[in-house]
Design a protein around this nucleic acid. Structure first.
Lengths: 190, 190
DNA sequence: GATTTTACTTACTAGTCAGTAAGTTGTCAA
DNA sequence: TTGACAACTTACTGACTAGTAAGTAAAATC
């Protein structure tokens, strides 16, 4: 018997990476098991169904995001720095690793994933939007950002851009993604 | 024997819809066959491998796009009208049908699709960007658009936004997509 | 009218998928 | 020392996957 260290966490890490690499329909329990040197059933022991596994990945991501944004290191930043922090997540942790956003990955396959997962994706997307929106409103009030229209709509635009931009980076390279980030800033900063 | 009318075209239509609905890994020959009331092998007769089918869908899309943009009905439009035409494709033919963009769909699964498909996706993405870029440059010169930075980067931003926006519409509804389109215009029009 | 070609069906293969039931092993607590 | 429990393995199922080879029927070509 091969013992996995920190089994649940290790499996979640791998599942998250695979989700961002190939999508929900693109990876299997066998992928995870062989990568960890255990049998399929070992993964089913921790996450009985694939839906359970998918939901756990998203729930962990949501928890992590909540922790981050409520942490003083982010919470006390100036709006401009918050923006850079947010962008840096996408650049360093996604684009540079050839990963795409969990949200985008699962929304493309939205019609072929379990309902429980769909709901989780919705909640996650709403939380990201809500944070972005309040950050944008705060920044515009503080005179750091300049844009027309509602903060909610600008937030939706920015998140959509990041999501699509990561996918573009897959086919056309990370430089393109950095260009998009720069353009986002040109369209926002005073 | 059940005969399909316009076999190749009908299969391509269905495959395109399924690609936009569930992604490349989310549909099977069996889906197409049962929908058309024929057997799996009938689809393989027209498109021996799934890669062949995927490539044919993209190639047809590329041809269609070339025809459109070179047609006088689009070519002779003012930049602002060209923009509206382009956006209307995404609103009417995608968002309102719950579909996502072919490019985004296949870029999410980029690492788990055949190489031949990857190349096709790349070419398609570049062609869309090239057209958008020249349209933006033309529009800015004509005084219809206002934006900082390179047209190429603004084009990459807009296409990324549309791509991500369609995916967002899946989870959060089409109204959100329309809001994003409005925000794109606010950030571009004089 | 005979032959070829097109467009399928039948019947199959080998591989993969998520998921399960029953058995094994190591650890820890009483 | 015993018993319970956690974390696996073994061995399997039924469904689905892309893909193939051989056969058939109708239509087009000669």
């Amino acid at each position: 018997m091969v013992k996995i260290e920190n089994s649940k966490k290790t499996i979640l890490n791998l599942a998250e990476a695979l989700l961002q690499d190939m999508g929900f329909n693109g990876f299997s329990y066998a992928h995870i098991a062989s990568e960890l040197g255990v049998k399929n059933a070992a993964i089913h022991y921790h996450f009985p169904t694939k839906e359970d596994l998918g939901r756990a990945v998203i729930q962990r991501y949501r928890d992590r995001f909540k922790l981050w944004v409520n942490n003083a290191r982010v919470k006390d930043l100036a709006p401009q720095e918050k923006l850079d922090w947010f962008f840096s997540i996408y650049t360093a942790m996604r684009a540079d690793q050839g990963k795409v956003c969990l949200v985008g990955s699962m929304e493309v396959e939205f019609n072929s994933i379990p309902e429980g997962l769909q709901a989780e994706v919705q909640s996650m997307h709403k939380e990201l939007l809500a944070w972005l929106e309040s950050m944008l409103a705060e920044g515009r009030d503080a005179g750091a950002f300049r844009f027309n229209g509602e903060p909610a709509n600008k937030a939706a635009l920015i998140l959509s851009t990041l999501q699509g931009g990561l996918q573009m980076a897959r086919a056309l390279g990370t430089k393109k993604f950095r260009d998009v980030i720069e353009q986002l800033k040109l369209d926002l900063l005073v």
